[in-house]
Amino acid sequence: MLVSESDSEKKLVQLKGLLSLDKPDLERCGLLLRELNIDFLDKTFLPIVDETKLTELHLARDVLECGAIWCILKEDHQCFNRYMAQLKHFYFDLKQHLPTSPRQYEIIGAHLLNLLSQNRVPDFHSELELLDCASLHNNRFLAYPVLLEQYIVEGRTNKAFFEACQNPPTPYYAFFSRILENTTRRNMAVCIEMSFTCIPKEDVKRIFFTDDDQFIEELVAERHWILEKEKAFSYATELERII
């Protein structure tokens, strides 16, 4: 049974309305997305762009963008990766045929932030090469992850944590920013082990810019740090970690 374009458009309007709510019904959004993905299954990677297909391409792109937002709201970065992989076809391969989406840079910025949060720095820089320099500096959605990466590379983690991570240009970035903060702290832990023989217990929270006791406990367990006389953490050797 063929689904009419108007039926798909109605579902898309309903989906956009749900996603715009303060507390959207993510389960209902997922059901609508599943139906829309089936409706546009054969339109996501059209080999030839024809004028008559532009409306379908617009709708298919809107569906994928809603899917990316849905993944962020349910805090599923793997799901977001899958939607982003399809959106790149529209954003870059079809850019000569489709106008820039109002949400394009917001979603690309989320993608860049996601790569940083997963410590995929080479992939982050590869993605930057697809974008023009003016947009990277002038577009607030793109400038945000670029600035964060600059702060982290320069070792200005206080800037990254207290300025940039606290003021994302869109609420959709908060999820990835939280992951990035902890990824950065884990990278800091590796550097600290290479530079110091131990860390005073009383300084741990200050060093890692956090008051989260649970995160500190997880970090200590992950790195196999040893609390000596309740005063300082020392580090296990590689052999001790394996054992």
Rank of each mutant, 00 (worst) to 15 (best):
residue 1 M to R: 09
residue 5 E to I: 12
residue 7 D to G: 01
residue 7 D to C: 03
residue 9 E to S: 12
residue 9 E to Q: 15
residue 10 K to Y: 06
residue 13 V to K: 13
residue 13 V to M: 07
residue 13 V to H: 06
residue 15 L to A: 01
residue 16 K to A: 11
residue 21 L to C: 11
residue 21 L to G: 06
residue 22 D to Y: 04
residue 23 K to M: 05
residue 34 R to C: 05
residue 43 K to P: 00
residue 44 T to I: 15
residue 49 V to F: 02
residue 56 E to Y: 14
residue 58 H to N: 13
residue 58 H to Y: 15
residue 62 D to G: 06
residue 65 E to N: 08
residue 65 E to G: 04
residue 70 W to I: 01
residue 71 C to P: 00
residue 71 C to Y: 10
residue 72 I to F: 05
residue 73 L to Q: 13
residue 76 D to N: 15
residue 77 H to R: 05
residue 78 Q to S: 14
residue 79 C to L: 09
residue 80 F to A: 08
residue 80 F to H: 12
residue 85 A to E: 08
residue 86 Q to C: 11
residue 87 L to E: 02
residue 88 K to G: 04
residue 90 F to I: 02
residue 91 Y to F: 15
residue 92 F to W: 14
residue 94 L to G: 05
residue 96 Q to H: 13
residue 97 H to Y: 15
residue 104 Q to P: 06
residue 109 G to A: 03
residue 110 A to K: 04
residue 112 L to A: 06
residue 113 L to N: 10
residue 116 L to K: 04
residue 124 F to Y: 15
residue 128 L to C: 04
residue 141 F to S: 00
residue 143 A to S: 10
residue 145 P to Y: 03
residue 147 L to Q: 12
residue 147 L to D: 10
residue 148 L to D: 00
residue 150 Q to V: 00
residue 154 E to F: 08
residue 154 E to I: 02
residue 155 G to Y: 11
residue 162 F to T: 10
residue 163 E to P: 00
residue 164 A to L: 14
residue 164 A to H: 05
residue 170 T to D: 15
residue 174 A to T: 12
residue 177 S to H: 03
residue 178 R to A: 07
residue 179 I to V: 11
residue 179 I to N: 07
residue 180 L to S: 04
residue 180 L to E: 03
residue 182 N to K: 15
residue 189 A to H: 09
residue 189 A to Q: 10
residue 189 A to K: 10
residue 190 V to Y: 11
residue 198 C to G: 11
residue 200 P to E: 12
residue 201 K to P: 03
residue 203 D to R: 12
residue 206 R to A: 13
residue 206 R to V: 12
residue 207 I to E: 06
residue 209 F to D: 09
residue 214 Q to P: 00
residue 214 Q to T: 11
residue 215 F to I: 02
residue 217 E to H: 08
residue 220 V to F: 04
residue 220 V to G: 08
residue 221 A to W: 03
residue 223 R to V: 08
residue 224 H to L: 07
residue 225 W to M: 15
residue 225 W to H: 06
residue 225 W to I: 07
residue 228 E to R: 10
residue 231 K to Y: 12
residue 232 A to F: 08
residue 232 A to G: 01
residue 234 S to M: 07
residue 234 S to W: 04
residue 234 S to P: 00
residue 240 E to T: 05
residue 243 I to M: 13
